[in-house]
Design a protein around this nucleic acid. Structure first.
Length: 552
RNA sequence: GCACCUGUAGCUCAGUGGAUUAGAGUGUCUGGCUUCGAACCAGAAGGUCGCAGGUUCGAAUCCUGCCAGGUGUACCA
């Protein structure tokens, strides 16, 4: 309805004052009206006239020309126009098509997760995966042709740390890997990494050993090393897949590994020597300062492609595999400036079109209190969070539904503005009350319960549709869905949708408290509202990767 | 040092030009289940919107300066 109103008023203003203005209509506080516009205030300056006079003129014209739409039009103090619509114009727009002009038919490749094998997946990885996956959903809904990919570090120092501890643990005999129970492999690798990381810090001789083992991850020329490495890598991905599934993320189309993109990256750098890359202290560097950035080493003095070269290779491979119009890389904000360098280099080397690659940055997950056990270093293992939330949920139900767990975690991470740091407080993060996933799920289950129990069948808008005061706020909120969704997609900000769905559910709960549906003489109309609400909530949650439950 | 980000209620966060009382959740206090699911609802208390100027009919929101915190800044990713 918002856009329709904007069009009506824009046309009127253009005709009346012979000027082209884009009129904005917004939702004011409910006491002022259903919709408002400040166009008179803006016109007053241009026309050098009283804003109240202009508002009154517009109000008169709208009243006489569109009396079937407007119940009432008020002019308020500085010059606001406030509109109250007739009931049937408040109805939900049933056309739930969210195709976005900018996204339509665009080929977009997006990295939806990037946890490393050979170590545990921590909260930061989970945040990254949840956001990446949800953004991919939104892009799809907006009409883009989305390719989900992932990228993982299977070479380098973290591999050395884990391998050192693993080899020690199995006495350099791959056969001993059998002693690790299949369901404890994840924990095993996490422990091995932790042990290796500690030893690396503590002992200078072990440090040298680990560096050497890290080096082997590139060459794999030792048969025993290779076999153990391969097994652990396979285990890692089996476990990562499992964790990602538990997070509610969709599977990726293509999994890229650092080991495979490194040669491609080094080749690009070497092709562009003395053009964009220069030899300095034995390393190949990119002089970022020339572009307002900073110098970055792409190939080390020992002729190894560093992460910048790998990212360059990755960009090329994605280009080759998908020829995307847009490529999105989701990372933590600490890599923001670094990616400006890589993207600049990729554009200069003509691997990717200018503006094609975007780095979307998420915040960092921080801890609110230092004293948190069951973690290594300062990284909390995501599995631990699963267990904590499951324990909290089981206070209500013996059987904790996987969908509810997914909803709790995803909502928790998505409700904060994309890019903001998340201060992780365990108490708050497992809270099932207030602005939380379970709150939304609960409100949905309540609505479904009414729908199940009512004997009335209603598929479309009741003929004699009208609204009572106690129902009005819910109707207004439902009607906001389309705009909210459009905004969420065009700005790629999931928190806008989260906030909306929460407020929507609040309105539903208030409605529920005040109005009896079943047995009421307004049962048909109210049942229609309940169904509309449930449908909007279900659709909204689904786009965030959360399945609304009918019962819980 | 330079660059970017952040600073809103005890805590965690929305709100980026609009409406005499700046919004949620949480925490504290109070009230509400013989009535469609109380993982809910209603109410109270709680804020110099980091500080100081400026622009504007109007500023948490825009501009300038300052203060505080975070992140990045050549061979880790």
């Amino acid at each position: 309805m918002k856009s329709e109103l904007e069009k009506i008023i824009t046309d009127l203003v253009n005709e009346k004052f012979n000027k082209i203005y884009k009129v904005d209509v917004f939702r004011p506080e409910t006491k002022f009206g259903d919709f408002s516009t400040n166009i008179a205030l803006k016109l007053a300056k241009e026309l050098n006239a009283s804003s109240l006079d202009i508002a009154n003129q517009l109000a008169d014209d709208l009243r006489s020309q569109f009396s079937e739409i407007f119940q009432e039009i008020n002019v308020a103090k500085p010059g606001f126009l406030n509109f109250f619509l007739r009931d049937r114009y408040l109805l939900l727009d049933n056309d739930l098509n969210f195709k976005n002009e900018q996204l339509k038919d665009q080929v977009i490749v997006i990295e939806t997760n990037n946890p490393n094998p050979f170590k545990a997946m921590h909260l930061g990885h989970a945040l990254n995966a949840i956001i990446g996956d949800s953004l991919a959903n939104l892009l799809e809904i907006g009409g883009a042709r989305v390719h989900r990919v992932s990228y993982h570090g299977d070479i380098g120092s973290h591999v050395g740390k884990t391998m050192w501890a693993v080899l020690k643990h199995i006495n350099n005999d791959p056969k001993n890997l059998i002693s690790v129970e299949p369901n404890s492999r994840y924990k095993f690798l996490a422990d091995m990494y932790s042990e290796g990381a500690k030893a690396y810090q503590a002992d200078i001789n072990i440090k040298a050993e680990i560096i050497s083992l890290a080096d082997q991850s590139y060459k794999l020329d030792d048969p025993i090393y290779k076999q153990v490495y391969q097994t652990c890598k396979d285990w890692s991905f089996e476990e990562l897949d499992e964790v990602l599934k538990r997070l509610g993320s969709k599977t990726v189309e293509r999994r890229y590994l650092e080991s495979e993109v490194e040669p491609a990256g080094v080749e690009i750098v070497k092709k562009n020597i003395d053009k964009y890359f220069f030899l300095s202290k034995g390393a190949l560097i990119f002089r970022g300062e020339d572009y307002g950035l900073f110098t970055t080493v792409f190939v080390s003095s020992s002729d190894r492609g560093l992460y910048a070269a790998r990212d360059l290779g990755l960009i090329e491979l994605k280009q080759r595999d998908f020829s995307p119009d847009k490529s999105m890389i989701v990372t933590a904000s600490e890599q923001k400036d670094y990616f400006k360098v890589v993207i600049k280099a990729s554009e200069l080397c003509q691997i990717a079109k200018i503006g094609e690659t975007n780095n979307i940055t998420t915040g960092i997950v921080k801890l609110s209190s230092g004293k948190m056990s069951s973690r290594q270093g300062d990284a909390i293992n995501i599995v631990w969070l699963f267990d904590e939330i499951t324990a909290e949920l089981s206070k209500y139900n013996k059987q904790v539904s996987q969908d509810l767990l997914v909803g709790a975690i995803r909502y928790q991470f998505l409700k904060v503005k994309l890019g903001s740091d998340i201060v992780f407080d365990i108490k708050q993060s497992i809270s099932l009350q207030g602005n939380s996933g379970p709150y939304l799920m609960y409100a949905h289950a309540r609505a479904q319960s009414i729908i199940r129990k009512s004997k009335q069948i209603i598929e479309s808008v009741p003929d004699d549709f009208n609204i009572e005061d106690s129902e009005r706020n819910l109707v207004l909120k439902i009607a906001d869905f389309k705009d909210t969704m459009a905004k969420t997609i065009s700005q790629l900000k999931p928190h806008l949708l989260c906030l909306y769905l929460y407020e929507l559910s609040q309105e539903f709960n208030r409605f529920y408290e005040k109005n009896k549906v079943i047995g009421s003489d307004r049962e048909i109309i109210r049942l229609y509202l309940v169904k509309s609400y449930a449908e909007v909530l279900r659709t909204g949650l689904l786009s965030l990767g959360i399945k609304a439950l009918d019962e819980m």
